[in-house]
Amino acid sequence: MSISDTDTDRRLFRPTVLDLGDALLRPWGRSLELPGGVGPALAAAAADPDIARWSPLAAVGPVDPEVYLDRCDSLWADGTAAAFAITDAADGGLRGNAYLGWTNRDDGVAMVGYWLLATARGRGLATRAATAVTRWGVEHAGVRRIELYHSVANEGSCRVAERAGFPYEGTLRGSYTYGGGVYTDEHLHARLASDPFTD
């Protein structure tokens, strides 16, 4: 299959809100408002031991909310990545993060990621968020293949991947430094745009 200029032009992530019923996926950026403020919410997320262990959110040191929000706005503006705050539909509080970003835009390959605060875990929210951003990327930005990586030690993320319809494809040796310093093995899961979504 050849890639046309029209396909490439279509492959842009544009800000939107995704409604999961009990949660809303809202674009991270300067315009995002959260109860108590975005800064304290990000600081609390970065301080969560599981988020700090498995997510790049605070891998390079303390999170600077201004830098984080500016980066998110920049990525949305150029259409290369979509960072969503997962918020409670009732009270607007932060519950987590869902991310979809191009790894090879010309070839239609993107990567999905997520993290949840401790109070939001165990209810299938990460699975639903990963599924929602994946479906949105396929339907609105022409994503062809979506990849999901996690440390081999992160069993919870492995379960999320499988429930969200991302089959295991293999182990990448010495692939990523979670928290910096030591390279660890990762599992690669992936799905294609042609794979059926299950609700």
Rank of each mutant, 00 (worst) to 15 (best):
G96I: 11
D107S: 13
I146L: 14
D19W: 01
R135H: 13
S157M: 06
A77Y: 01
V133Q: 07
G181R: 03
F166D: 05
L34W: 03
A193V: 06
A129H: 09
D50A: 07
P167K: 14
A82W: 00
P35M: 10
P15R: 06
A77I: 00
D22N: 13
L75N: 05
W102Y: 09
L12C: 08
D19G: 00
G79T: 05
G122M: 06
G170T: 09
A90E: 11
D5H: 01
D195E: 12
T171F: 01
A110T: 13
H189W: 03
P62Q: 10
W115P: 08
V160L: 07
L18I: 14
T87S: 07
G179W: 08
D48S: 03
R159G: 14
G108R: 03
M111Q: 15
V63M: 09
D106K: 04
D22M: 05
M111D: 15
E186Q: 11
G93K: 09
S74E: 12
T80L: 07
L100I: 15
S194V: 12
D48E: 07
A98F: 11
A126V: 06
V109F: 04
A23T: 01
P35T: 13
D195L: 06
L25K: 03
A126I: 08
D107I: 01
D185T: 02
V133S: 08
D106E: 12
E139N: 07
L116M: 12
L20A: 00
E33V: 13
G29M: 02
L18T: 04
A89L: 06
F13E: 04
T184N: 09
V182S: 12
Y68T: 09
D107H: 14
Y176T: 14
R26C: 05
L18H: 01
E169H: 13
L69P: 01
D185H: 08
W28A: 00
A44N: 10
T103V: 14
A81T: 09
W76N: 06
Y176V: 10
P40W: 01
T103D: 12
D70L: 09
L75S: 09
A41G: 02
G36L: 07
P15G: 02
S74I: 01
T134K: 12
G37R: 04
E147K: 12
D9S: 01
V143A: 14
L25V: 00
A120I: 02
S74Y: 00
S55Y: 01
L20D: 00
L32Q: 03
A82M: 04
G101H: 15
L117D: 14
W28L: 08
T119W: 08
D88K: 02
H187R: 11
G113S: 15
A23S: 09
N104R: 12
A23G: 01
Y168N: 05
A190F: 04
A98K: 07
H189S: 14
A98C: 12
Y168W: 15
A47P: 02
T8F: 15
D195G: 05
T171G: 00
E186M: 10
A193S: 15
A58K: 03
P196R: 13
L100V: 15
A120Q: 02
P35G: 11
